[in-house]
Design a protein around this nucleic acid. Structure first.
Length: 201
DNA sequence: TAAAAGATCCCCT
DNA sequence: GGGGATCTTTTAT
């Protein structure tokens, strides 16, 4: 549920380079219906052909077309034959960039998350990975392209509840990439010390 | 038409 | 710490 202290993020927030948006998404709140989770880990995927790790690096396809669309929408993709992952689309319309939501600290609606995360054993297991948080929230392919800035009632949104981004976030190379990983592309940010981060380093 | 790889997770040792 | 699950999408013959 929306709360009185929630502040909507304007379209302009997303209409920037994903590397600028990503660290500012830390400590924002990912909302769907009654479920709320604080964003504690993200990765940037950059447009303009400079990012070999991006799905969009080889141009627009049926799968990645949402990344090429206007900012402030949700890019949802399917991978490894069983997992969904969620991104916030960044940069102006026509430039393919996005921020992958890698982990949340559950705040509310944990009962609903538990109904979908059967494999979880403790609260930390609910949203401590990009596919885990999608399973917890029930996000699938039908949610690809939905508007995060002006969501329908009960829809998916990202809000500012007054907690600022960390002044000194953790930074590292991105996780799980066959190409585009490496210390030369330190485009992962996380909240230091948070238990829900998928990997401490 | 075929083949390979994939922005992961889970269970086992 | 390592490997299997599982199947869509993309790219190569």
């Amino acid at each position: 549920m929306a709360r009185r202290s929630d502040r909507r993020l304007p379209r302009a927030f997303y209409e920037r380079d994903a590397r600028d948006v990503a660290p500012e998404l830390l400590n924002k709140v990912f909302v769907k219906g009654a479920m709320r989770g604080r964003i504690v880990e993200v990765e940037a995927y950059v447009g303009g052909g400079v990012d070999p790790g991006s799905h969009a690096h080889r141009g627009e396809t049926m799968r990645n077309r949402t990344m090429f669309g206007p900012p402030g929408h949700l890019y949802v993709y399917f991978t490894y034959g069983m997992h969904w992952c969620s991104n916030a689309v960044c940069s102006p319309d026509g430039v393919a960039s996005a921020v992958l939501l890698r982990a949340l600290a559950p705040l509310a609606g944990l009962e609903e998350m538990w109904t979908r995360r059967h494999k979880a054993r403790v609260d930390r297991d609910l949203c401590s990975g990009p596919a885990k948080l999608c399973q917890a929230y029930g996000i699938e392919g039908r949610d690809d392209g939905c508007d995060l800035v002006r969501p329908p009632a009960g829809g998916i949104a990202i809000v500012d509840d007054g907690v600022p981004p960390p002044a000194d976030p953790g930074v590292s190379e991105r996780i799980g990439l066959r190409v585009g990983a490496g210390d030369d592309l330190p485009w992962r940010w996380f909240v230091r010390g948070d238990r829900n981060v998928s990997r401490p380093g």
